[in-house]
């Protein structure tokens, strides 16, 4: 227990040191508050605008979470098709790489044009950006089953459905989680990027990305910092939720998941 808490204490110490350094920089160089607000001012902004901060956070969490869940559902289905049929994989796998390399900022305006501004198009953007790692990792897990295990199943006259459900799918679960972990981080980035283009058209109702744009245009730098903080917390929360689920489902049997690691 002690050993596990210590790294967390170290990280906390670094955080406090950074706050002190931050404050010192302000005092020594007389930086104007619209360039760099004090930690205290950021804290005040968080308290003063807490309801709108939480509402922005909730909107972005919904969009990123929705996109992530949709990408898990679609990604697993696509991976299943890739895993079962080699010809489907040969024909379509290269396009999943394309999916990964297409710059999201370049297609975001297109999606806004097709879907319309608002939460739905942001969710679609989060979905697109999360999809490739889910497909790639799940497919890898499905097709990397040891040959002797397949032979074992064949010796017991296993049907194709049994091979899939009792061998390939459970074997792919650890890889699926690797994919989800990567996707969880970038779904948040995707949602915030998406909101820069497609956030709500009504003031005060947008997610974090939209609020960041608005706060920077108004030079509300203290609130801008609060929003960045909220975005970071959101990314962290996604990551830890996925880590927990991964631990929950895998710790009993999988080598990589003996205990939730706090780093």
């Amino acid at each position: 227990m002690k050993a596990r808490l210590l790294p967390l204490a170290d990280a906390l110490a670094v955080f406090l040191a950074m706050l002190v350094l931050w404050q010192l920089v302000l005092w020594i160089f007389h930086v104007p508050s619209y360039m760099l607000p004090s930690p205290w001012a950021v804290a005040r902004a968080v308290v003063a605008r807490f309801p709108s901060l939480v509402s922005s956070l909730a909107i972005t969490a919904g969009e990123a979470g929705g996109g992530l869940l949709a990408s898990i559902a679609a990604g697993v289905l696509i991976a299943l098709a890739f895993g079962q049929f080699r010809w489907v994989r040969r024909m379509l796998y290269p396009y999943t790489i394309l999916l990964q390399t297409v710059p999201i900022v370049a297609i975001a305006p297109l999606i806004v044009m097709w879907v319309g501004a608002g939460a739905l198009s942001v969710t679609v953007i989060a979905f697109i950006i999360s999809l490739a790692p889910i497909i790639a990792n799940t497919t890898q897990g499905l097709i990397s089953v040891e040959e002797n295990l397949v032979h074992l199943f064949l010796m017991h006259n296993a049907s194709p459905a049994q091979l899939l459900l009792k061998l390939r799918l459970p074997h792919a679960v650890p890889s699926l989680f690797v994919g989800i972990r990567i996707a969880s981080g970038i779904s948040v980035i995707g949602a915030i990027t998406g909101e820069l283009y497609a956030g709500s058209s009504r003031v005060g109702e947008g997610g974090l990305g939209y609020a960041i744009l608005y706060a920077s245009s108004q030079l509300q730098t203290d609130y801008l910092f609060a929003l960045v903080l909220a975005a970071t917390i959101l990314g962290f929360s996604f990551f830890f939720i996925v880590m927990f689920l991964e631990w929950y489902f895998l710790h009993r049997w999988h080598e990589s998941a003996r205990a939730p690691e706090v780093e």
Partner: peptide, 16 residues
């Protein structure tokens, strides 16, 4: 195959 069983060099157990 119904009457045959195969034991492989490694134990080939399903870890889950």
């Amino acid at each position: 195959r119904e009457t045959v069983s195969y034991i492989f060099q490694d134990a080939t157990l399903l870890p889950w």
